[in-house]
Design a protein around this nucleic acid. Structure first.
Lengths: 71, 71
DNA sequence: CTAAATTACGTGGTCCGTAAGGATT
DNA sequence: AATCCTTACGGACCACGTAATTTAG
């Protein structure tokens, strides 16, 4: 499946930040942003709530994370 | 790993034919040929013996097949 | 203003199909 | 001649980086 996107997604979920995640996965911030957008379009739902200082998982995002963390 | 290439490789190994394999994996003959070539370049060794009517595995090809058949 | 996220744009890689060429029988 | 494999060419898609822009604190 979307192995690559899920790895990036997990990094964002675990850091609560696109920029921190980008360093972990060795990509630029835009690259991370695009992969997350692609996932959200794929599932046709928001997986992150981008308000406030930290980014948080939506309910759909939490569900996806449970799946993604086991690969 | 090279999941896609290995699936194609297995089809060729099991049919002894690029054209038969192409039908199984729903690709054209050239597409199959290119994927096999890519594998041979990756491993820097021939994996098929293309002489005679039927294509056969080289020793390296047999080894790869043992690995590939289990995905 | 500063840090972080998004959008825009161009690039490289991979895989494919069609078309044309070469080899084997 | 027919069948099979290969080479050549062009297109689609994906992922990326840099640069520019927008948004949030």
């Amino acid at each position: 499946m979307e192995d690559h996107k899920l790895k990036i997604f997990c990094a964002v979920a675990e850091t609560g930040s696109f920029s921190k995640a980008s360093k972990i996965v060795n990509l630029t911030q835009p690259a991370v942003s695009l992969q997350i957008q692609a996932l959200e379009e794929l599932y046709e739902t928001a997986i992150f709530d981008r308000s406030g200082k930290n980014i948080t998982l939506t309910p759909a995002g939490k569900l996806l994370y449970k799946y993604a963390r086991t690969y």
